[in-house]
Each structure stands twice: as structure tokens, then as C-alpha cells.
Simulated scan of single mutants.
Amino acid sequence: MAMRTDAPTRREQILKEAARLFAERGFHGVGVDEIGAAVGISGPGLYRHFAGKDAMLAELLVGISGQLLTGAKRRVAEADGSGRGADASGRPGGAGGASVGRDAEAILDSLIEGHIDFALDDRPLITLHDRELDRLRDSDRKLVRQLQRQYVELWVGVLREVYPGLVEPAARSAVHSVFGLLNSTPHLGRAGSLPGRATTAELLHRMARGAFEAAAGERAQG
């Protein structure tokens, strides 16, 4: 995902602290006063930015799903270099899954790098998704699922370009498995206890590629 160079807005600051507190204490364990104190404003002052905690949670979970999809589409377009990018279905090069040719490996590596950035930099959001998704309104939860499906299908299309013998169901299972691997970062301990961001990112990348290689190799043997 793209790195921001400008200062975060007050709204973004509120969301960041809300995510951290919700992940640490649970949604019901945090009050608006605590969130306000974390960003230096009164609890009631939060209502100038959000209708309440439910609105914060929805924006966090819908927002990160949308950001992941948008970032992945951008990475496909940049790594492909042809300007085709991904169509509305999330498939690279068009609904028919037109070949991304020799750039497929670079595209897959770029997608993995983007998801690793998320997994290392937004660990509270992974915890929130696992614990609190069911608290969203039906419409927001459906939107999260829709965005996630598009994100998965984009990966599936690229993966099958890299490993042409990998059938679609197996590719989809492999993508979900790798997401599970990368999204395990909240269980790795506190950020300060990790061996270093670059080292951890490199390890996760090797493990993700190894998992895809194993899935493709097992399919080829079958």
C-alpha cells in the first residue's frame, strides 16, 4: 500500500487510536472518552467526526477492505506495466483473465509485499476483523465481504498466471491459506519483540511464495 507523506487528519488519528484500543480491550471495553483522550480531545468532541463507536468500527473494517483492494489493483497495474490493470471483476487484464505474461511473477511478489505491509502495519485491524466483524450492520458486513471477495479473485487470477496448471478452486484455497499465514502477525508478539520489520517481511514473503509453490507442486503431482 502507498506510504503517506502528509500528516494524518484528526479523523484518521481518531480511527487509528480507536483501532488500537478496540483491539486491546474489545469493542465494549472502550468508551468514547478514552478514545478522545488518546487523541487529545473530549469524548463528546468525537461526535463532530463520528456518530459513535459503531460508525468508527464500520469505517475501520470497510475502509481497510477497500484500501486493500484499491492498493492491489494499483500494484497489478504498476507491475504489469501495460496499463491493463484489473477489470471490475478483479481479474487481471479483463474478465477473460488475459495473460499478464512475463510480469506475472513480479505482480504476485508485489501483491504479497502489499499484504505484508498491511499485516505488519495494521495489526489491530486484523484483530478487529476477527473479533468484531459480526457487530457491523448487515449492509456494512456485506460490503466488507464483497470487497474481500474481489480482493481474493484478483489474487487468484494472478496466481493462475504464475502457475497455469493450478485449477481455480485450488488457487482460491491457496490464496486463503496464505492470507491466514500473513494475517497471523497479531500472534507474533509485540512489535518491539519481532526480529525487525525488514527481516520479518522477508520471512513472511518467503513463506507465502513457498506455500504457493507447494500448492502448485502438489497439484502437478496429482
Rank of each mutant, 00 (worst) to 15 (best):
V32C: 01
G40A: 11
R20Q: 14
F22M: 09
P44T: 10
V32T: 13
A2H: 11
R25P: 00
A18Q: 06
L15G: 04
K16G: 11
G43L: 07
D33L: 12
R10H: 09
P44I: 12
A37T: 10
A18M: 04
G43Y: 13
M1C: 01
T5R: 15
V32E: 13
A23T: 11
R20Y: 00
T5P: 00
G29R: 03
E24T: 12
D6Q: 13
P8H: 10
G43T: 07
A37R: 14
V39L: 02
A38K: 09
R11M: 02
D33H: 06
L46F: 07
G40T: 12
L15N: 05
V30K: 06
M3A: 13
L46C: 02
A37L: 14
A37K: 14
R10C: 00
G45C: 03
R4G: 05
E12S: 05
T9L: 04
R4H: 09
F27N: 06
E34S: 08
G43W: 14
G31P: 02
A7H: 07
I41A: 07
G36S: 03
E12M: 02
G31Y: 03
T9R: 09
A23F: 04
A19V: 11
P44C: 08
R20V: 11
A37M: 09
I14G: 01
P8N: 06
F27G: 08
F27I: 03
M1T: 02
G40R: 07
G29C: 03
E24V: 13
M1F: 13
V30R: 01
A18H: 03
R4I: 06
G29W: 03
R4W: 00
V30L: 06
A2L: 15
V39Q: 08
F27P: 10
